[in-house]
Amino acid sequence: MSLELLQPRFGKPGHGTAVLRTPAERLKIEDVPQAALARLRRALAAEGAPAAEGDSVAGGPLGDTSHHATTDAAGLSDLGPPAVDWTQAEELAVWHLRLLGYPDARCTRGGADSGVDVLATGAVAQVKHWAQPVGQPPLRDLFGVGQAAAAKPFFYSLSGYTPQALEWANATNMALFAYSADGRVLAQNSAAHMLAPSSARPGGGNLGFFEQARADRYRRELEKLRQEINDLTALMHKRTQSRRPAVRRSAGEAASLLLSASRALDGGDVLPPADRRREDFHQVVREALKQVKRLL
């Protein structure tokens, strides 16, 4: 059996076509996610099946059986080595950091690492293979280590992050990633998306002119909304000191809305920079801030 993987010119973004050939027949499967194509290629390679040369997908020949960054339909993920346990998870983080441009990334197992699981020149990373989302304290600890070492901090979590952790990471511009047992790495905030290699972006390369313009607009809107939240939060705190019970009650309602608005921004920040779904999150925030202004 041989395998040929194709990327049709007008195919669905993030999808390709698999052509399986046997002595008796030829089977063509269309609209297959590229992550699945990569796994199929590696599985057949492990069985000794040859792969025919095809069009390139996500930065390399499809017939190549080595690891390449691959993207799903949303263009959000890299597919690396599996991470079934914590040791493999650290190896996945090493692989991903090398993909991001840190060729000397290595695990720190076996020594005093100050809470750092992966080291590289100019980068430190921590990996949490936990069943629950990572909170703010581990992020603060890693940030402090990075500051002391003049290195950029990266965080990898199996189960994502709490809203408080996302808020703190966005305020400090720390890149957050989540990963899955099959080796999929997902950017969790804007800082992580901006670091994604070109092969992990939609279309397998840099954003087009219109996509880049849309991404820049979303970034400006995000910064404006965050500043507005900060200004209204400061005003809300002043209102909580009022001697009038009605004013304090309104400030309490505003505090709840401001927290929801901040978390909505963080939720949208998980999406790629030019993803149109960001508009929905921004609209939710605008509506919440309108209510806050009426309350204050």
Rank of each mutant, 00 (worst) to 15 (best):
F143N: 10
G144R: 10
V145I: 15
A150P: 01
A150H: 15
K152F: 07
F154S: 04
S157Y: 03
S157L: 05
G160R: 08
G160F: 07
Y161N: 08
P163K: 09
Q164H: 05
Q164N: 06
A165C: 09
A165E: 06
L166I: 02
A169N: 08
A169R: 06
A171R: 06
A175Y: 10
L176I: 08
L176Q: 11
F177Y: 15
A178H: 02
S180W: 04
A181G: 02
R184S: 13
R184Y: 00
L186N: 03
L186V: 11
N189D: 11
S190F: 08
A191V: 01
H193L: 06
H193G: 06
M194K: 03
L195D: 08
A196K: 15
P197D: 03
S198A: 13
S199M: 05
R201G: 01
P202D: 04
G203K: 03
N206M: 10
G208P: 01
E211N: 12
E211K: 14
Q212G: 03
A213R: 15
A215D: 04
A215C: 03
A215F: 01
Y218N: 08
K224E: 15
K224M: 12
L225Y: 01
R226I: 10
I229T: 02
N230L: 13
N230P: 00
L232R: 13
L232N: 05
L232E: 01
T233G: 08
M236V: 11
M236P: 00
K238C: 04
T240D: 02
T240V: 09
T240Q: 14
Q241Y: 02
S242N: 14
S242A: 15
R243T: 13
R244A: 13
R244H: 10
A246Y: 00
R248C: 04
R248H: 00
R249S: 06
R249G: 00
S250V: 03
A251T: 07
E253Y: 06
E253H: 13
L257K: 14
L257V: 08
L258E: 03
